[in-house]
Design a protein around this nucleic acid. Structure first.
Ligand SMILES: [Mn+2]
Ligand SMILES: [Mn+2]
Ligand SMILES: [Zn+2]
Ligand SMILES: [Zn+2]
Lengths: 144, 144
DNA sequence: CGTGGCATTAGAATAGTTCTAAAATTGATC
DNA sequence: GATCAATTTTAGAACTATTCTAATGCCACG
């Protein structure tokens, strides 16, 4: 009992720190969202996150989900992954890694290799064949 | 005069062949679209293509642009590149290559290297800094 | 308390894309 | 060339992920 309470307190502090470190003011909604999002490494759509957050008992609007995901992405706490025009995932794992997207199942799977220079059949998830391998490097104009 | 006419005829045949080779029936609209799209290697949105095609004097509807781009993509004549949920480019260059996307200017630029194993500052377009480098390998379940 | 500055919210608006159902075109067959 | 089935095109409606609006809520600080 005391153990669980203690752990929750630690968790809460950790999540708060994670936001504060990036200059994000902690609010009840942001904490509720962060609790779900950062519970583990995962790939979630905005809708999925909205449902998961509200299942915990918190009451967070769709607008706040989008505002918060936008803010977190801007601050480097989540990574946006654009699969198609109707499929954007938010990845709670911001370490450098890449993905397999299974067009049949809709699964987005982390690649084991940190940076894969070549994509061999043996690198793919079992039972799948490569369709395309797209690299999009996003750049910004250097600040003057 | 005769030269130009001759060239246009050759062009038309080449475009027709390109479609026919992939089992696509040639129609006036598909030819009008292909003429613009395959005139050179380029990255176009559906809207841009619609405007360019209709500027040539052809009358093609938006639905046909989307139908045709979908068909061409399915047959491997164009490549879809998803930059964000509201930005899909169609690439008339289907050879294996990857892209730099400049978030400031909206430019989508081909990478020189065929497959870039590492992204060094010196690899980036002049005056830009890397924001993210995303690899999405699309896979399908192996046909049984 | 009262004021200022964010944050949150419901719902409307936006925009890219897909769908619908009818009309047009095609091309094979007689 | 007329007939007919299959395919394609089309205008506009519908759909849907995301963004916007503008009103309300929430603190922190004087
Ligand atoms: Mn969703
Ligand atoms: Mn467009
Ligand atoms: Zn991931
Ligand atoms: Zn390209």
């Amino acid at each position: 009992m005391t153990d669980l309470t203690h752990n929750e307190a630690l968790q809460k502090t950790t999540v708060d720190q994670r936001l504060t470190e990036r200059g994000i003011f902690v609010t009840a909604q942001r904490r509720a969202i962060a609790d779900v999002l950062f519970a583990r490494n995962q790939h979630l759509t905005a809708d999925q996150l909205l449902m998961l957050v509200n299942e915990t008992g918190a009451k967070v609007s769709k607008a706040t989900i989008y505002n918060t995901l936008g803010l977190f992405a801007e601050k480097g706490l989540v990574r946006e992954i654009h699969i198609s025009s109707a499929k954007t995932f938010y990845d709670s794992n911001t370490s450098r890694h890449h993905h397999f997207y299974n067009m049949d199942t809709g699964d987005l799977i982390d690649m084991k290799e940190r940076l894969a220079p070549l994509f061999l059949q043996s690198d793919l998830p079992d039972g799948t064949v490569m369709e395309t391998a797209d690299i999009v490097v996003r750049v910004r104009n250097q600040k003057p």
